[in-house]
Amino acid sequence: MALVVVALGGNALLRRGEPVSAATQRANIRRAAVALAQLMAEGHQLVITHGNGPQVGLLALQGEAAGKAAFPLDVLGAETEGMIGYVLQQELDNAYTGDARFATLLTQVEVDPQDPAFATPSKPVGSVYSEADAKRLAEQRGWSIAPDGNAWRRVVPSPRPIRILEIEVIRLLVAQGVTVICAGGGGIPVAQLADGTFIGVEAVIDKDHASGLLAAELQADAFLMLTDVPAVYTGWGTPAQRALGDVIPQELAALDFAAGSMGPKVQAACDFVNHGGGMAGIGALEDVSGLLMRHAGTRVVPRHGA
């Protein structure tokens, strides 16, 4: 049996261009739950994380549309952790036919309030817009915006995670055989004051970096990042694009990847492996079993053949 941390990308739960509706999200989460239940049936213990970018953006827009002051991003992060975790826990319980226990845990993740990311927002949240609409909304609402593929989106600060405050609780649950859903959306971003107390901060932590930290803290055998592409590619979008299979961190470090999408996944995978972790995989949800068995996707390993 392997202990596997599985990070469900926002694009695995809500495909690009789909409406951010309850029905759409549940259908995609049900698809994810069936795939993860298969891993459990194969005898693996899972700790599951998930993205929340589209959902955080939608909740912020709903607050503004209602004429109310929008809740801060840390509160919206907590909301989406509960919302997505509830549906995911329910669908996992429905999909898995064996004897299992599930728990969704609101997870605070500490960041450095002096992190330079606060001065350079980069994390896409919310809906996609045309360039003209994005610029109009940025002027109206004081947003930072940036290109996201062929569209534009709002971007917010994404500081690096330092510490998972509930890590001991997660360890206790894992030791009891509980399938834990935690650190959703990268966790709730908090900072520690000089007097030792914690406060929420206006940010969205990158889910892959937080998940990699979680996998390292749990000494997981594998760390899998599931998204809407089957592998990491060199020369993406060109006639020369090529999928990577087994690769070591040093080889990936010599390549360039998109900062807002594949870049964080590659960095999180390398960090996990470099800090003594097992295998880190990046691939499609439907290939999750093959990814763990190293038959599909991109697998970052300490050395070739390991």
Rank of each mutant, 00 (worst) to 15 (best):
L8F: 05
G9C: 00
N11R: 04
N11L: 03
L13M: 14
L14D: 07
L14P: 05
L14A: 06
G17S: 05
P19G: 04
T24E: 11
Q25R: 13
R30I: 01
A32Q: 07
A33P: 08
A35D: 09
A37L: 07
A41F: 09
E42F: 02
E42G: 11
Q45V: 10
T49A: 10
T49N: 06
N52K: 03
L58R: 13
A60D: 12
Q62G: 05
E64A: 15
A65G: 00
A65F: 04
A65N: 10
P72C: 09
G77R: 01
G77N: 09
T80R: 03
G82F: 03
G85L: 12
L88G: 10
L88S: 01
Q89P: 01
Q89N: 13
N94K: 13
Y96S: 11
G98F: 07
G98M: 11
D99H: 09
A100E: 07
R101N: 13
R101P: 00
A103F: 10
T104W: 00
L105A: 03
L106Q: 12
D112E: 09
P113A: 10
D115L: 00
A119T: 08
P124V: 08
V125S: 00
V125F: 00
S130D: 09
S130Q: 05
L137W: 08
A146F: 04
V156Y: 03
P161K: 04
I164L: 10
E166W: 04
E166T: 15
I167A: 07
E168V: 01
G177H: 04
G177C: 06
V180N: 07
V180M: 05
C182A: 14
G184F: 10
G184I: 11
G184V: 09
V190N: 02
V190R: 02
A191V: 14
Q192K: 13
V201I: 12
I205R: 10
L214I: 13
E217R: 15
Q219M: 12
D221Q: 12
A222W: 10
F223Y: 15
L224M: 14
L226G: 07
D228Q: 11
V229Y: 01
P230Q: 02
P230A: 03
V232A: 01
V232T: 02
G235L: 00
P239D: 06
Q241G: 00
Q241W: 00
R242G: 00
A243H: 05
I248S: 09
E251R: 08
L252N: 09
A253S: 15
D256M: 10
F257M: 11
A258S: 15
S261G: 10
M262H: 04
G263R: 09
P264T: 05
K265R: 06
K265M: 03
C270R: 12
D271K: 09
D271N: 11
D271V: 08
N274Q: 14
N274E: 14
G276I: 04
I282S: 05
I282F: 01
L285R: 06
E286N: 12
E286S: 14
V288T: 03
G290S: 11
L292I: 14
R294M: 12
H295E: 15
H295A: 14
T298C: 11
H304W: 13
